[in-house]
Amino acid sequence: MSSAATRARREEDVQKAYDIQVQAGIEGAARATAVGTGLTIIGHYTWPVFRRQKLPFKAFLVSVCGLIFGAERALLEHEAKRRLEENTIRKLARLELAQKGIVPTETEIAKWRAENEQ
């Protein structure tokens, strides 16, 4: 497999991960805003320490935390899925190369992948 093909596949993976992270961040921020607004109201009326906090700080807690946690969760799920797919492909390549009597080095696995992707 040429380095250009490898680079293109990696750039595609990076772009897909970015898109997943952005979408999950937006959804997480919306969910946190919906749930966090209610919790902020409850906290404001029941907890004096929270009541003394300024409104911008409360808004920051409500929206940014959901954005960060939502995006991070989605990215970790995507990375785990990609790692599983990559390990499956590499396992299959090692098995087929070993059956042919070829030592499954990184170069040979890359060649096998290039042949089988076509």
Rank of each mutant, 00 (worst) to 15 (best):
T88C: 03
Y45H: 12
I42Q: 04
L97C: 11
A5W: 05
A24S: 13
I109S: 03
G25C: 10
T6I: 15
A74R: 13
Y18H: 13
T33G: 15
Q53E: 14
W112F: 12
K58L: 06
Q118V: 01
V35M: 08
A24H: 03
I41R: 02
V14F: 03
L84A: 15
T105E: 10
I20L: 13
L55K: 07
G70L: 08
I102C: 01
L97F: 05
Y45L: 12
K91C: 07
A17H: 10
L55W: 08
N87A: 12
R82G: 04
A93E: 04
T33D: 02
G28P: 09
P48C: 10
S2H: 03
E27P: 00
L75Q: 10
W112S: 01
Q53D: 13
R7I: 01
R51E: 04
E11P: 02
W47R: 03
R73I: 03
I68Y: 10
K58Y: 06
A32L: 02
T107R: 10
A98C: 10
A80Y: 13
E96S: 04
A8H: 05
G70C: 08
E79K: 15
Q99N: 09
V22C: 12
Q23S: 14
E108A: 15
G70H: 04
L75F: 10
R90H: 11
C65W: 03
G28H: 15
R83M: 13
A32G: 07
A24K: 07
F60P: 00
A24N: 09
T37Q: 06
F50P: 02
A17T: 12
E12V: 12
E27K: 14
I109K: 02
I109T: 09
W47I: 03
N87I: 01
T40G: 09
L97K: 03
G101I: 03
K111V: 08
E77L: 07
A32D: 06
E115P: 00
T6Q: 15
I68K: 02
D13Y: 06
E85Q: 02
L61Q: 09
R73F: 05
A30W: 04
P104R: 08
G36R: 08
R113C: 09
A4W: 06
S63Y: 06
R7Q: 04
Q15A: 14
G43M: 09
A110D: 14
E115V: 02
I109R: 02
V49P: 00
T88L: 03
I42P: 00
A80F: 12
E72H: 05
C65Y: 04
K100C: 04
V14C: 01
E79T: 06
L95R: 09
A93L: 04
E11S: 10
D19L: 08
